[in-house]
Simulated assay, not measured.
Amino acid sequence: MSAARDRMRDAWRADRAANLRYPKSRFVLRWLRVCQRWRETPGRVGRAAYVLTAGGYKIATEWVLGIELPPSTRVGPGLRLRHGVGVVVNPGTTIGRGVMLRHGVTLGNRRTADDCPTIEDDVEIGVGAVVIGAVTVGRGARIGPYAVVVKDVPPGAVVRSPRAEVVMPTSRPGAPGDTRAREAIGGAA
């Protein structure tokens, strides 16, 4: 058997085990692994098979499912794809083993085409998180929902998203939510 076929089968087994309750994720990742296998196969047959499988993959995943995970991306085995909708991964990104990507995640470049992140093994990336630029997210790190990462993240670290603030509009002094009025009468802010 060819080395490309063996790598594809091993990665697909790990992907399948990591996504047992997610049939859409298993479908997408199986197709991704087949595309990657044909991409690595030299010769005319490999090239023709890649063009056919990758063309169908691109139409089905990007245009229909809203998952942009190109076959040229280096993706380790056991990728956990949760829901998948709105996932955008630049082909220059490197993803380790056992990584979890939730919906709305963007992994992309910042200044040049190859200025992309490296996501090490066992990283979890929350809903809507953005990791851009030539940054490294260390092994076992967790990126919270809607976090924006533009600097290296050490192994095991947790990155929280920006805090949410509730701001009440003040149309007139003394209106509900106007802290100036409460402070003026000795109330707590």
Results as ranks from 00 to 15, higher is better:
114 D>P: 06
59 I>A: 13
145 P>G: 11
124 E>P: 00
37 R>I: 02
117 P>T: 04
148 V>D: 10
156 G>A: 10
130 V>T: 14
124 E>H: 12
100 M>K: 06
86 G>E: 09
84 G>A: 04
54 A>H: 06
137 V>W: 02
75 V>I: 14
107 L>N: 07
44 R>M: 14
72 S>V: 12
153 V>A: 06
97 R>T: 08
112 T>K: 10
47 R>Q: 09
36 Q>S: 02
96 G>S: 06
153 V>G: 01
141 A>P: 05
89 V>C: 07
151 K>D: 15
73 T>H: 06
128 G>I: 15
103 H>S: 01
157 A>M: 02
128 G>V: 14
117 P>A: 00
154 P>T: 13
100 M>S: 12
148 V>E: 12
76 G>Y: 03
95 I>M: 01
142 R>T: 15
59 I>W: 12
145 P>F: 10
90 N>F: 08
125 I>G: 03
35 C>G: 02
101 L>Y: 03
147 A>V: 08
76 G>E: 04
147 A>P: 01
148 V>K: 12
128 G>R: 15
143 I>S: 05
77 P>S: 13
105 V>F: 01
158 V>M: 09
116 C>F: 09
111 R>E: 15
64 V>D: 04
52 L>W: 14
59 I>P: 00
123 V>E: 11
39 R>P: 00
122 D>H: 13
150 V>F: 13
126 G>M: 12
117 P>M: 02
89 V>Q: 05
157 A>I: 05
56 G>S: 11
114 D>M: 12
41 T>L: 12
109 N>P: 00
64 V>M: 08
149 V>K: 06
153 V>T: 06
63 W>A: 14
118 T>G: 11
123 V>K: 08
35 C>V: 04
114 D>K: 12
65 L>A: 02
55 G>W: 08
131 V>C: 10
42 P>E: 11
37 R>A: 15
89 V>H: 03
125 I>E: 03
101 L>R: 03
75 V>R: 03
123 V>P: 01
104 G>P: 00
49 A>R: 13
119 I>S: 07
126 G>A: 13
140 G>A: 10
122 D>L: 09
148 V>Q: 13
65 L>S: 01
133 G>F: 08
68 E>W: 11
99 V>Q: 05
46 G>S: 11
81 L>Q: 00
110 R>G: 11
58 K>G: 07
72 S>C: 05
74 R>S: 13
62 E>A: 05
76 G>V: 08
113 A>D: 15
146 Y>N: 13
87 V>D: 03
65 L>P: 02
109 N>L: 15
52 L>H: 05
143 I>A: 09
117 P>L: 04
136 T>M: 03
126 G>H: 13
118 T>Q: 12
48 A>N: 08
120 E>A: 07
146 Y>I: 00
113 A>H: 14
134 A>D: 12
74 R>I: 10
154 P>V: 14
44 R>Y: 14
107 L>W: 08
158 V>D: 06
111 R>Q: 12
67 I>T: 06
85 V>C: 10
